[in-house]
């Protein structure tokens, strides 16, 4: 019992480290890609590791225990959510790998982060937070529509089972069966990751990097971890939902990277929208796609027998 628990604990920490490493690597490669698109040489792709290391070794200021608690609470639930995500063939806690659980644990992380940065008492972080929340009111709606379709289509809420249903080749993947839903979630992903044109919340020149304005040293490091793990989780969810999971870890991150690559390409060429424009953008095209997909699924498969 104890041994089992310790093994799970070690595996959990391993998954956390792996997800963090992958997320940071993606971030580094993303920086490199953007640099190449702008015809720059760009930082080494390991730059994000170095940055994180430096941040954790640098001094910082705290605005009190709510600030500290918030930053830790912005990171811990993300780590917890990882334990339920099927990563390739491996899920640490398969019996609880419910999609909604992961989504809401991520919400908890955002809530914690918001508490921390708002406790700093800087109006810039408040403006940034208000923008982040308004953006969330945008992208979560099409995201919900897509999840709705997936639930009705797969008739289950376990990510492990959703992955299992897509086994057996490309034609079984949900991206083939629900292309509109995939499109909607891919657009929503752009907003979730806060990449351009939806990076209003952290506009550096405008509101001094918004929520992060008072974060330095390890606090910024926690923010960076949260972002990287969030990146891993969000792309991972889409891979599990639409791209049929993966037989092993490497293919899994390859698929994740394809998603992230699209996001980065869009990020590199688009300017920033205004906040209310982007919120209402999500209520138009992506939501329409999501609802259309849901209607198609309902017509095809009918509703559950209750």
């Amino acid at each position: 019992m104890v041994i089992e628990f310790l093994i799970k604990l070690a595996q959990g920490l391993g998954i956390g480290a792996l997800a963090l490493a992958t997320g940071l690597l993606f971030g580094g490669i993303g920086r490199k890609i953007i640099a190449r698109i702008q015809r720059r040489y760009g930082p080494p792709f390991t730059q994000n590791y170095i940055d994180l290391f430096k941040l954790f070794s640098k001094g910082s200021v705290s605005h009190g225990w709510a600030f500290d608690l918030g930053l830790v609470a912005g990171f811990a639930p993300m780590l917890a959510a990882l334990m339920f995500l099927p990563i390739g063939p491996f899920t640490l806690l398969p019996s609880d790998s419910s999609l909604i659980m992961i989504v809401y644990l991520m919400m908890m992380a955002y809530l914690g982060m918001a508490m921390g940065v708002l406790a700093s008492g800087n109006p810039n972080s408040a403006i940034g937070m208000s923008r982040a929340l308004m953006l969330m009111a945008g992208y979560e709606v099409p995201f919900a529509a897509v999840i709705f379709s997936v639930y009705l289509f797969s008739k289950t809420g376990y990510l492990t089972q959703i992955v299992a249903q897509q086994a057996g080749g490309f034609m079984n993947w949900n991206i083939v069966k629900m292309p509109l839903g995939f499109l909607a979630i891919e657009i929503a992903l752009q907003g979730m990751l806060g990449e351009k044109p939806f990076d209003q919340a952290i506009a550096p020149a405008e509101i001094a990097s918004g929520p992060m304005v008072e974060l330095g040293g390890k606090y910024l490091g926690f923010g960076m971890i949260q972002h990287s793990v969030g990146l891993f989780l969000e792309t991972g969810i889409v891979v599990d939902l639409f791209l049929g999971g993966a037989p092993n870890f490497w293919i899994f991150i390859a698929k994740q990277f394809v998603l992230y690559f699209i996001v980065i390409l869009v990020d590199a060429i688009l300017p920033r929208l205004r906040i209310h424009e982007s919120t209402s953008f999500f209520w138009k095209l992506p939501l329409f796609l999501g609802i259309l997909q849901a209607v198609i699924v309902i017509i095809q498969g009918g509703v559950l027998n209750v």
Partner: peptide, 17 residues
């Protein structure tokens, strides 16, 4: 996860109030 988070918070560089 929280325990781990706080441990990490405690072991890395110090902060100033």
């Amino acid at each position: 996860a929280f325990i781990f988070g706080f441990t990490l918070f405690a072991v890395v560089a110090k902060h100033k109030k």
